[in-house]
Simulated assay, not measured.
Amino acid sequence: MDLTDIRREYTKGGLRRDDLPKEPLVLFNKWLQQAVDANLPDPTAMTIATVNADGQPFQRIVLLKDLDDDGFIFYTNLGSRKAEQLNINNKISLHFPWHILERQVHVTGHVEQLSTLEVMKYFSSRPKESQIAAWASKQSSRLSARQALEGKFFELKQKFSAGEVPLPSFWGGYRVKFDTIEFWQGGKHRLHDRFIYLRNDDNQWDIERLAP
């Protein structure tokens, strides 16, 4: 298979300086809503990147579960590899790949762990099977076989069949406090449009255009 000839032209339109609001979340929310309206699969899916103690980067896809002026929120097992790495280095990168719309958004910042009340509120809203799966999976640990995971799930499903599923002590979430947000819009002839919002010392936003 020859990969060198796999390419396409980006024709969805550009992004101009006059299109940019003062606050980056205004544009992000607009793009996210357009991704939802376009029926993109998993429009809230984002790649998150963390770094281990040796400086080795790791990436994985999680779902954005909330967003406000304080940051981007996601949930995970606090014993997972990502959580262990964030305990060592709380800096993080997020990437939203909305390919069909020829758009990308890249976020950098650091995480703060959510309160138990915030985690409980979200956990209780999940489908019961998802709650049980959180108990069943010791995320990032090695498994001898899939049957071991399924067996644990069905054991817990029976255990919790008659009542509510309690919040696991090892399950939580993070708020990503962002310092930069970059918006990328595909353009003809690879002349893409890139703008980055950078938080300045006055906690305001500077906007710069980047070369594609």
Rank of each mutant, 00 (worst) to 15 (best):
E118C: 06
A45L: 03
L78Y: 15
T50G: 09
F96L: 02
P24Q: 01
I100V: 15
V111H: 13
E155M: 09
P168E: 00
E155G: 06
F154W: 08
D201E: 13
V36F: 05
G163H: 13
R60T: 14
P168S: 01
F123M: 10
V176Y: 04
N200V: 13
G13V: 11
G172D: 05
T11C: 11
G79W: 05
P127Y: 07
L94V: 10
A49R: 01
W98C: 08
W135V: 13
Q56M: 09
S141F: 12
Y75S: 06
Q34F: 02
N200K: 07
H106D: 02
T44D: 01
A53C: 02
Q56I: 15
A148E: 12
S137M: 06
S80E: 02
I6C: 08
D18C: 06
K138G: 07
P168W: 00
F96H: 01
E150Y: 10
V36W: 04
K177F: 05
I88A: 05
T108F: 04
E102C: 11
T116M: 03
L143I: 14
M1D: 12
V176W: 04
E102G: 12
E9F: 11
M1Y: 13
T180Y: 00
I6H: 07
G79E: 15
L78I: 14
D70C: 05
E84V: 05
F178C: 03
I88E: 11
H192G: 13
A148Y: 04
L117W: 06
K91R: 14
R175L: 08
D70R: 13
V105H: 00
P168R: 00
P41C: 07
D70L: 11
L40I: 13
I132W: 00
F154K: 04
I207A: 00
Y75M: 10
V165E: 08
P24E: 00
H95P: 01
A162R: 11
D37F: 01
E155N: 06
